[in-house]
């Protein structure tokens, strides 16, 4: 049996006390659902002499508001709550989809939306046991000197593997963080750093308290996830898009890619050709082809990066078509469009 290392377990009853507990204990980590942290700790991917549980905090999991004025999701809401919430399913569909695509029903009953936003970037040289990592000589992210995916790289290329993170960017969500030094609110996009190790701007004692979704009276959105199996698997690529409409035309287009780098990769600037238009097959195909550029898949997840890179445009096209109410699978792009070799 794989076991956790000995550690202390604290259960504060308020967010303030949780933040203080982390600030007080060097190396302490916050734990909510534990579905990412516990396996990583069992594999000794990091040390946590003290865990501070957020599960004893009341009122941390509410989902409030309505789409016309915006909604707030308590960070302790389970992924299952988010996936099955009627208002989220309609007005912020991509988020409900993303939550519903995470791993398994079991994990969705345990894992929280706050925790999913903070999934430790993954790499198949890193999400391994201590003995395995010893066998390959360790890596930059823990105990090693080099990144085994890109050996000459000065940085870690672990992959942002959250389903909800790209959606949060696409929806223009904001987050409230409360730490020992007080509370602050900012764009979800500002939470992430492009580094596989120090992947957020959050301080250790900062607790994500709430996820604020802007008013979305006329928004459609979609999240498409690429993975081997219909459950269990982390995304090897995720495409989140959100379109705000006015008079049948796209008013604002936002999008982000998951599992395409060490943080969710913003592609909104590449979707601007959609603005002011009524997107058709051709326009969507063109935009999707352009929007794949920022994706930088490396050979450190399931599937080859050859394939993942080529899938990017197809997935973006499908997500966009989905958000436009078109048959997602009837798009024009194939992986080989550019080379013109495919049937």
């Amino acid at each position: 049996m794989l076991r956790l290392p000995p550690l202390r377990y604290l259960r504060p009853t308020s967010v303030e006390a949780a933040a203080e507990a982390v600030a007080e204990h060097p190396g302490a980590m916050l734990i909510a659902g534990g579905t990412d942290l516990v396996p990583n700790l069992k594999r000794r991917q990091f040390d946590a002499p003290v865990l501070v549980s957020l599960r004893g905090i009341a009122g941390f999991d509410g989902i409030q508001g309505e789409p016309g004025r915006g909604m707030v999701i308590g960070a302790g809401a389970t992924l299952d709550q988010v996936a099955t919430h009627p208002a989220l399913q309609t007005a912020y569909r991509a988020l409900a989809q993303a939550a519903g695509f995470v791993s398994t029903p079991q994990i969705r009953h345990m894992g929280t939306i706050g925790g999913n936003l903070l999934v430790d970037p993954r790499c198949n040289y890193y999400n391994q046991s201590a003995a395995w990592r010893q066998a390959v000589g360790y890596c930059l992210k823990r105990d090693g000197d080099i990144c085994l995916v890109a050996r000459s790289s000065p940085r870690c290329w672990a992959v942002s593997s959250s389903d909800s993170a790209p959606v949060a960017l696409a929806l223009g969500a904001e987050l409230t963080l409360r730490g020992a030094e007080g509370e602050r609110r900012g764009a979800a996009a500002d939470l992430y750093r492009d580094d596989g190790i120090v992947y957020t701007t959050k301080r250790a004692d900062d607790v994500i308290v709430g996820i604020h979704l802007p008013a979305a009276p006329a928004m459609t959105s979609a999240y498409w996830k690429l993975r081997r199996r219909g459950s269990f698997d982390f995304p090897v690529l995720g495409a989140a898009v959100a379109l705000d409409w006015a008079d049948g035309m796209v008013r604002v287009a936002r999008g982000a890619l998951g599992a395409a780098g060490s943080r969710p990769v913003e592609v909104s600037h590449l979707l601007t050709p959609l603005v002011g238009r009524r997107p058709d097959d051709e326009l969507i195909a063109q935009v999707a082809e352009a929007a794949e550029k920022p994706a930088r898949p490396l050979d450190n997840t399931d599937f080859s990066h050859y394939w993942r890179k080529r899938m990017t445009r197809v997935l973006i096209e499908r997500a966009l078509r989905d958000a436009c109410g078109l048959d997602p699978l009837a798009g024009r792009l194939t992986a080989q469009t550019r080379s013109g070799q495919a049937a």
């Binding site: 198949n124 391994q128 395995w132 219909g230 459950s231 269990f232 698997d233 982390f234 399931d302």
Partner: peptide
Amino acid sequence: VHKFPSMLEYKSPTTL
């Protein structure tokens, strides 16, 4: 080294 000696990365089909 075995590339991924785990239940998650050794892909066993699910109900779906």
